[in-house]
Simulated assay, not measured.
Amino acid sequence: MIPLVVRPEPQNYSLCEALRRAGHQPVATPLLRFAPGAGLEQAPALLSELASGDYVIAVSVQAVNFADNALKTRGLPWPDVTYVAVGEATGRAFAAVGVTALVPDDPRSEGMIALPQLQDPAGRRAVILRGDGGRDMMAPTLTRRGARVDYCEVYRRCYRDDADGELVKQWRRLGVDSIIITSGGLLQHLFQLAANSAKDWLLSRLLIVPSIRVVEQAKTLGFTHIINAKGASDPALLSALDERKRNDRQ
Rank of each mutant, 00 (worst) to 15 (best):
I226Y: 07
A95H: 06
R160D: 07
L102D: 01
S233L: 06
R20G: 04
L187K: 07
A126K: 02
G185L: 14
R92T: 00
I212S: 13
V56P: 05
N65T: 11
L102E: 11
E243V: 06
I208K: 01
A232F: 06
D132N: 15
Q188P: 11
L47V: 06
V86N: 00
I227E: 05
A93Y: 03
G23N: 02
S178C: 08
Q62L: 08
P104H: 11
N69A: 13
P8Q: 10
L4Y: 01
L47H: 00
V214F: 06
L174Y: 02
K199C: 05
A101V: 09
Y159Q: 07
V5S: 01
I180D: 02
D242I: 03
K169D: 09
R160I: 11
G175L: 00
Q188H: 13
D150H: 12
D177A: 02
R21C: 03
M1K: 00
E153C: 14
Y83H: 00
S233Y: 00
R213C: 09
G222Q: 09
L102Y: 09
T182F: 06
R33V: 13
L102Q: 07
K219P: 10
E41W: 07
E49Y: 09
Q192A: 15
L203P: 02
V6W: 00
G75D: 11
A139Q: 09
G87H: 11
L46K: 10
P3H: 01
N12R: 04
E9T: 02
D54T: 12
P79Q: 10
W171N: 03
S109A: 15
A122G: 11
T90K: 04
L129G: 02
E166S: 11
T224K: 14
L15A: 06
N65W: 05
N69D: 11
Q119T: 08
A51G: 12
D80E: 14
Q170P: 04
D200A: 10
L15K: 01
V176M: 00
V64Q: 01
D105I: 11
Q188T: 15
G222F: 13
K245S: 00
A147T: 10
